[in-house]
Every structure is written in C-alpha cells, then in structure tokens.
C-alpha cells in the first residue's frame, strides 16, 4: 500500500484533481461503452423478434388478401392494355 490512510489515497499527494479526473473520465467512458453495447444488442434482438412476428402475422392472416390484391393488379394491367 502506497498510502497510509484512505484520506491520503483520495488526496493523491495534492494531485487529486489530475489523477481522479483522468481515471474518472476513462472509467466513465468504458462503462458507458459497455452499457451502450448491451442496450444496442437487446434492441436489435427485439427488432428481429418484432420483424418475425410481423411477417408471420402477415403470412397467416393475409394470404387470401394477397391473392385478391394480385388479381386487382392484373385487372389494372389489363385495363391499361
């Protein structure tokens, strides 16, 4: 141990503002980076889940509608011709 007491440790021999600001900014940045990476990953997982749910909902409920739309498009094309 390089310091006799905790108060001395905090004081850093008069260099407290320098030591603690350099270490503080570094620690804060690393923690923020980890937090951001976790949130990002979770959000992306949820995004894929939502996408799968949406696509499944569309493919199960909208099958007949798709056919109808397809007919109407074809009909439209025939009208144009």
């Amino acid at each position: 141990m390089a310091f006799a007491s905790f108060a001395e440790f905090l004081a850093m021999g008069g260099h407290a503002p320098y030591v603690w600001s350099a270490w503080g900014v570094t620690a804060l940045l690393l923690l923020l980076i980890v937090w951001h990476a976790r949130v990002e990953h979770r959000q992306l997982i949820n995004g894929v889940k939502r996408r799968v749910r949406r696509e499944r909902a569309r493919s199960t409920s909208a099958a007949p509608q798709n056919a109808a739309q397809f007919n109407s498009v074809e009909g439209g094309m025939r009208d144009d011709a």
């Binding site: 141990m1 390089a2 440790f9 850093m12 021999g13 030591v19 350099a22």
Partner: peptide, 23 residues
C-alpha cells in the same frame, strides 16, 4: 492506484500512466 509506489519526481500524478498508456 493504491499499491504501486509514487514516482520520485512526479509523485502521485504519475498514476495517470495506467490509463494513458493503455488507451
């Protein structure tokens, strides 16, 4: 931060090396 000895010239400000150099 707590166990390495202070630098004989720079005192405790030298402890910044432990974040400065790796970064």
């Amino acid at each position: 931060l707590a166990f390495a000895p202070a630098d004989y010239q720079q005192g405790n400000s030298f402890r910044i090396i432990y974040v400065h150099v790796p970064a």
